[in-house]
Design a protein around this nucleic acid. Structure first.
Lengths: 338, 338
DNA sequence: TCCAATAATGAAAACATTTGCAAAACTATT
DNA sequence: AATAGTTTTGCAAATGTTTTCATTATTGGA
């Protein structure tokens, strides 16, 4: 029966002050006498009062939420990114409103709109490829936005990330430098996924610089999963000709490849070189330890968090974004062609 | 300069109707004439108007957000859970407000409070172990809440998950049934982690039923990471005596163990049996394929989503929660003691 | 003790909506 | 053409806060 709604007025009554004073006691505590404040706090506790952010958001006050839209959360790499981003952003008093679009860009637009309805203070999107509608929406509302994961000098909005092209290039160069000429590639579908597309371009250009090319039937496309990659690669190596190197679009696919090879009794790197991209948790400790390109998700996440917060509270923010360079990690799964 | 704030009144003016009509056209479209609605829609588009959810939340209307607090997002298993939960919840028009507490229960309370300030429509927490304050808060505010991941008949709130004790028991029984007597365990820290604690209890009871016990120095505690587990296990097997089975608290730790063993040239399962818990993506396709207990994260996530939505929109919801049984998966890393 | 500062509080307007109720505009029926 | 009914619309009050401005209380000199 005590189900009376407890709002700031109820608190005011209980503390025998006016609502204004209660409000002030929250937002500008230095303006209210210590004794009064104590009385108010007591009332708050006694009544179990919880402030209504919605009501203050209405006054143009920041709500303290940042919208984040990712393709999916259950890829190791996004999970890492989300974690570091949200940690950093929480430290500064923000909470993230998270949603996933499953690689469907129209979904992304719809979600962004919804988040704007909730009056998020800022937005974080993955990658540089978004629908014109999405870009238009964000621009028109002039919502502080940061693009994560990918970096490009001429991105339409501040971005923090690596050049995925560069990552592909690094690994491609490494592989050709080892003398490989029969090279296969295993990549995720590239539609709606500019990261994958650019990595692949980087790899292709690296090969092309030596006049090399990936044969059509060695250009495998598989969903992001160990199982799928393992399958595809198992089939690949059972063929009559076998590549001497398999470049994978990310570490998860590389793990799949490694398992397929182990199962088939093919030794790595003696018989086949395998490479990944990403340097996910676990890649270093895989046996054999995976050669890959490190794209530092945690660093990106926390730099991006810092940037978006700066943009939101406008402290002469560097609107430009930040390039976090990828790094080639030569470990045990790659070796000279025998 | 067109920077005029565009609110419902601006739209009303542009469409030459009253604000009430605009509002109605959004919330009860059937009450406004088709022609008028069209005019309003046009105005909305022209002005780039975006509704202000905060202003409607104030009227007691549901905001369409569900708060979700997890220990961390970058553990494979939570990522999977979050993904399936959020997918299902988004289908029904909700968005999740996500935060992580890093296994610190006081943080969880603070976050929960903040989410309540944002007037989330419901809350989702991981596990059954929460501070009294948190439970009290949720109860007092009578916020629809669901506890994910763990199930217990006498949980104080509806929960959807598996009995982690049961999971531990299954794997423990399996291992002793294979004849193992020298058994080691590798588990994550159990403080603030009731899941891990219960799994371990299950395992211990299984062993105890045969009069077995895990030696103190074979009871390894390691953070959730392949690297850490690999390290610990490498040290373990280099000792003079070596266990014939290593039970790991989750699949990630088991992967670490497997890599350590491979590195040391110990064969699995001939020399040592390894088991995990969780059945994460990739465990089945590991070489050798990991024996584990499946705790179906996706199923749990989507059932929980369904439940919380039901609780929110009160459709005679089954307040009780749901038990999703774990399942023993005997694969290639476990075998009879030699 | 009185006055001027200064500190603390309250009243009322503002914020962007929704909604109950009443008025206005249509339709159909005679 | 008038009436009764029905559909659309607008007015005004309400929602839970914050904030500006004015008012009251307190304090420190003289």
């Amino acid at each position: 029966m005590k189900e009376k709604k407890v709002d700031i007025i109820a608190v005011a009554k209980a503390a025998r002050v006016s609502p204004s004073t209660v409000s002030r006691s929250f937002n500008h505590p230095e303006l209210v006498k210590a004794a009064t404040r104590k009385r108010i706090d007591a009332a708050v506790r006694r009544l179990g009062y919880i402030r209504n952010r919605a009501a203050q958001t209405i006054h143009g006050i920041r709500g303290g939420t940042i919208g984040m839209i990712v393709p999916t959360v259950d890829h190791a790499i996004f999970a890492e990114l989300i974690q570091s981003f949200s940690e950093r952003v929480e430290e500064r008093g923000f909470t993230i409103l998270l949603a996933s679009h499953g690689y469907r860009l129209e979904r992304e637009y719809a979600i962004a709109r919804k988040m704007l309805e909730h009056r998020v203070d800022g937005m974080a999107l993955i990658g540089l490829e978004h629908s014109d509608d999405t870009y238009g929406l964000l621009q028109q509302q002039s919502t502080p936005t940061v693009l994560l994961w990918n970096y490009s000098d001429n991105a339409p909005m501040p971005c923090v990330g690596s050049e995925n092209y560069q990552a592909g290039r690094l690994i491609g160069d490494h592989v050709v430098r080892l003398g490989h000429r029969s090279i296969a590639a295993v990549f995720p579908p590239i539609s709606g996924n500019d990261r994958a597309f650019q990595r692949l371009s980087g790899v292709e250009d690296a090969l092309a610089s030596q006049g090399l090319k990936i044969a059509k039937d060695w250009r495998l496309e598989t969903p992001y999963s160990v199982a799928a990659a393992k399958n595809k690669v198992a089939k690949l190596i059972s063929g009559s000709r076998r590549p001497t190197a398999i470049i994978c679009g990310n570490d998860v696919l590389a793990w799949g490849a490694l398992h397929a090879l182990k199962r088939a009794g093919v030794s790595v790197p003696e018989d086949v070189t395998i490479t990944g991209i990403g340097d996910f948790h676990g890649s270093k400790d895989f046996e054999p330890s995976l050669t890959t390109v490190r794209i530092p998700a945690r660093t990106i996440g926390s730099r991006a968090a810092k940037l978006i917060v700066a943009l939101i509270i406008k402290e002469g923010a560097p609107e430009s974004g930040e390039l976090v360079p990828p790094e080639l990690l030569i470990r045990s799964t790659s070796g000279p062609v025998r």
